[in-house]
């Protein structure tokens, strides 16, 4: 896939995710984490390079592509304020069809992956997605290093980078992700203790 084909594919995926979000809009965090999960768990070749920050896996290229999608009118973005902060509400733009058309072949090929991410994670809040994607990131990093982690070890590693989340909540999320078969280093054979 050359650069412009990849760009068309990315813009189409972003537009599709925004268009099909259960609430009709997504935030930036959700979009970032959807792209991360699509690429990492489902192997959708988006070509992003996610690395870990305190707010979870992140690649500024996703926001860069979002900027392009906005420029082309495929999506539109508004700032929304909430107590103590702000976020973005990204919704379908007037020219969304054009972006979907340009990446139609790629979308068709990965239709099931997009269904998957929206079915499983589409209704989750940004904090929840931040945690879930961090769990997957920590797990995959361990798997890449050929480390087998116990349930407790994975929970501890996630706590180390995300101390804002309570241990119970992390355990609950690790359990769910493991049951869904999304973890590699922490196999279902490991014991969930505590």
């Amino acid at each position: 896939m050359d650069w412009s084909e990849r760009q068309d594919a990315r813009l189409a995926v972003i537009t599709e995710l925004v268009s099909r979000a259960p609430s009709g809009h997504v935030g930036r965090t959700a979009l970032m984490k959807f792209c991360y999960l699509l690429q990492t768990v489902r192997g959708v070749p988006l070509g992003y390079r996610f690395t870990l920050y305190s707010y979870g896996p992140f690649d500024s290229s996703v926001l860069s592509d979002l900027g392009t999608a906005e420029s082309l009118g495929a999506v539109r973005s508004n700032v929304v304020y909430h107590s103590g902060g702000y976020g973005y509400r990204i919704s379908k733009g007037d020219s969304s069809d054009m972006a979907l058309r340009n990446g139609a072949e790629f979308l068709e090929k990965h239709r099931k992956d997009i269904d998957w991410v929206l079915d499983l994670f589409g209704s989750h809040g940004s904090a929840e997605l931040e945690l879930e994607s961090t769990i997957v990131y920590v797990d995959r990093e361990a798997a890449r290093n050929r480390e087998g982690l116990t349930f407790d070890e994975l929970v501890q590693r996630v706590r180390d980078v995300k101390p804002h989340f309570g241990e119970d909540f992390i355990r609950e999320k690790v359990t769910v992700l493991r049951e869904q078969g999304l973890l590699k280093s922490c196999s279902s054979a490991a014991t969930a203790t505590g």
């Binding site: 690395t51 870990l52 920050y53 305190s54 990131y137 990093e141 996630v158 180390d160 980078v161 101390p163």
Partner: peptide
């Protein structure tokens, strides 16, 4: 530097290196 879980809580400061 690379953004991995080994940075633990210090990952907060990664934005000063690349952000």
């Amino acid at each position: 530097i690379e953004g991995s879980a080994g940075a633990k809580q210090g990952i907060f400061w990664r934005d000063l290196i690349t952000g």
